[in-house]
Structures are given as C-alpha cells and as structure tokens.
Nucleic acid binder design. Sequence first.
DNA 1: TACCAGGTAAAAA
DNA 2: TTTTTACATGGT
Length: 275
Amino acid sequence: MIVGLPAPYSFDLSLERYRTFGPDPAALWHEGGLHRVFRGVELRLEAAPHGVRVEPGDEGPAADVPAFLGAAFDLEGFRALAAHDSDLAPIVGALVGFRPPIVSDPWEALVGAITSQQVSLQAALAIRRRFVERFGRRVGLAWEFPSRERVASVEPEELLALGFSRRKSLYIEGLARSDLDLGALAALPDDEVKASLTALPGIGEWTADWFFARCLARPDAWPAGDLGLRKAVGRFLFGGRDPSVEETRAAGVRFSPHRNLAAHYLLTGMRVIEP
DNA sequence: TACCAGGTAAAAA
DNA sequence: TTTTTACATGGT
C-alpha cells in the first residue's frame, strides 16, 4: 500500500537521520528502504510517487506509519512562515520535502532521549544498539524496541554492562517500573505533560522538550537547551557564534507557532547543507 | 592523553 | 540559593 503525504515530500531527506547516524537495529536502513517493526510486524518503507510504499500493507501495523512519517505536521504553514524569513528560507529551499519522522511510542522516545543525554550521538547510538539487541526481539531484518515490561524485569547492573551510566540505568529502571501511564500523556496539555515527566528521576527539561518535539509532534516545541540546536542556531542565525540557552530560546520566538519544524530544519540543515 | 559530546541530580559553596 | 562535580562511552 501507499501512504500518501502532501507534496512536496522527499523520502530520502525525511529519513536522512537513519542513514547518517549509522545502523540502528530498531530503524534499519537497508537497500534504499527503511525497515522498522510496527505492532510486532516488520514493515519496509520505501520512496513512492506522492508518498511512501509500505510492505506488507496489512491494515493493522501500517496504520501507525503516517504518524511515524510526521503526517501530522503542518508543513504548508511552516513553509509559508519560512518563505518570509531570511534565515529560514535558504534552509527550507535546500531541504524541499523534508518532513521529520516521529517516534510515536512514548516509552521508546523517553528511553532514547535518556540514552542520548550528555554523550555524543555516536556514543548514544552504540549503547542503543547493544540495548535493542540485548532486550529487544528480532523481526526480519529489524528489531522491535525492547518493551517496557521486559525492561522492568531487568536489573540496573545489566544496563550498566551495556554502557549506560549507573545513573541512567536507574533512570530507565525507574521509568519502566513507574506507574505513569505514558500513553495518556498525548491527551494532556503541555504543562501537565512536563510536570508528569520531570517528576520522574532522570527526566529534566531537555528530555521533556525533545519528547514534545519528537514523540508528541507538538507544533511549537523548541528544545532551546539542546546543544545541537544551539550550534545550528549559531551557524544559521548568529553568524557562527554559539548562542547561550537564553539567546537560543529568544531566537525561536519568531518561528512560533511552527518552532518544532524550524528546529528540525535547522538541525537537518547542519548535516545536509554544505558550510 | 585529555577533552568534548543532542543532561541530570546530588554535593558543595 | 547558586555553582560545581560525577557520570560511561566513542571519537579526535
């Protein structure tokens, strides 16, 4: 089956992060397509006219694909805003059809964010690989991300052995064993989501902000504390000088109400656009 | 070798 | 209350 997306749409640009950062067993690039497990079934996504081809196209698992592909984003509205912004316009012009992918599963999104705290993306991915292949389940070429239930029965020492810090091992165990209904967060307003998440050990403002941006696809999320976003804002908006967190926060105001897409375009521009 | 990298919370001041 | 420090790994 084909998942249609509004034009312009670029499959290669949209899923660029899964090629650039090296093999991720839970989102595996293979021979021009992306293999990922949805509801226990491996699907292959590949470019198709006006959208993305999904095989096998059974209705159940494939129903989650539009959300993964960021179908909820108002790309048209963002492009209209960016067209009148001298800093954003060239980035959007270079990334025509980019629509950020979304990790809809809140458990996977939060564990992924904790994994990425403080360390380089390369180091985080290496640890993530070991974690997925240790506690996940192989389905075809790809791996299903380890379930919350499985991880809840793991000892923190087993996570430590995979390369997580002692602290992060406790954070992940705490999250797995907490009684917070992660699936219910999507229906709550921002302040309640943030309060629920930051009440958990190991989830601070940065992690909550990326949860808004990459999991809930909240249109105006803007992780001003993120080092990568700060460097991107430094390059594209501050002429090469890295801004402070507060300067980064202030710089995002003019992109409202599309700050999430602005952040994604800036970050992808850092990787894709030649200096 | 030492230092930095998509932070966080606990200790110290 | 604000500032400093420890943390595990991968790359340079």
